[in-house]
Nucleic acid binder design. Structure first.
Lengths: 199, 199
DNA sequence: GAACAAACGGACAGATTGTGTCCGCTAATG
DNA sequence: CATTAGCGGACACAATCTGTCCGTTTGTTC
């Protein structure tokens, strides 16, 4: 593996640093890709990402010649946030509060990234898989702790509890009532948490 | 407005009946469209529908020269089922049981037709809008009856309760746990209903 | 079973959308 | 100021969808 720096300048020993505009654009592209993927799924076109980032297509292709790499970066980015949330949940003294935090965090982020639905396990390669595993492990601990302390109903496996975090992400039902995410997610969460609480 | 029968044979007075193969294909196309829309949304291509129906594209275009008409037929078909479910719910003696029936029915059908998410209110024209209104009215009555009898929590508007029916439709969460609809819908429903029950 | 036309299938042309490359230009760096 | 990494976006190619047309099949009638 090698960095993206061209070999030429290194061979010269010039050690020319990465140009600042290049760094800025790299950041823009990644951020844009996150936004684009969140709303349109993993199939967004490179043009769409470029437009979102305010750069030319060429720039996106230069930075990420392979689609997989870009998506892996996006997924990794999302996972980082999710893992942080899980840690917060585990650090809570109160088991229910911790679980509630985790659940809410996962649910809201799932909703934000509704576009990618369940594609996290298929893409991104081993690095992403590893982090995903880490997250799952943290979540399992938060859930089982709450169950052990009798705060969370025990008749659901931790995987099933996690699956529930997808529920608030749904935009609408067949009936076509307008979504209203701000208010929407909140009451779905309320009902779900009430349904999950033990006793 | 005219039927699709060609004017010629009517003018002759021959009263040639619609050919049986035509009737059969019409049914196939509609059924295929329902399946296709359910899984791929209202944007399915005519080719896709034709393949699903096992007929040529020409047949689909001949039957439904305008996309809107086809989609209206599909939506109308779905609504018919939903309305029947709502009536069942209203006919139940027990208010909670009736509500539970309605909620489950709506949720499962929403899940089956996940592809069309919230597009029912935008498409289909006035006829569909009318039936949708009818359905909403029935649902409201079922919900309010359950609330009046103190079986369903009162802190949610009936629209919000209906919005919740979309929740089990979610395929997965960001974590990418495999969907498993058969088992999946069931426990989401369980938790939701427990969260909705009063007391 | 012969004759007629309704209905069919699918090839095909045109439009739209996405992919990936190339090259003239811009501007960061030293 | 000279050098060149990096940029933008036009462009060629590919894939997909739309809608039509016409030779062939098949239901219906006599």
């Amino acid at each position: 593996m090698n960095t993206k720096r061209p070999a030429a300048s290194q061979a010269q020993g010039t050690a020319m640093p990465v140009r600042v505009d290049a760094q800025r654009n790299a950041a823009r592209v990644l951020a844009a890709a996150r936004r684009a993927v969140a709303s349109a799924g993993l199939d967004v076109s490179y043009h769409e990402i470029a437009r979102e980032a305010g750069v030319g297509v060429g720039t996106v292709y230069r930075r990420y010649p392979e689609r997989d790499k870009l998506m892996a970066a996006v997924l990794s980015d999302i996972l980082t946030e999710l893992i942080a949330t899980a840690h917060q949940g585990l650090d809570c003294d109160d088991a229910w509060e911790g679980f509630s935090l985790l659940f809410t965090g996962l649910a809201l982020r799932t909703a934000q990234n509704a576009g990618l639905s369940g594609s996290l396990d298929q893409h991104g390669g081993p690095a992403v898989a590893q982090r995903r595993h880490e997250l799952l492990d943290l979540a399992r601990r938060v859930i089982e702790r709450a169950q052990d302390q009798g705060r969370l109903r025990r008749d659901l496996a931790w995987q099933d509890v996690l699956r529930l975090t997808g529920a608030p992400a749904v935009q609408g039902c067949v009936l076509g009532l307008e979504p209203d995410p701000a208010h929407g997610h909140h009451f779905v969460l309320t009902v779900l948490l009430d349904g999950l609480r033990a006793g």
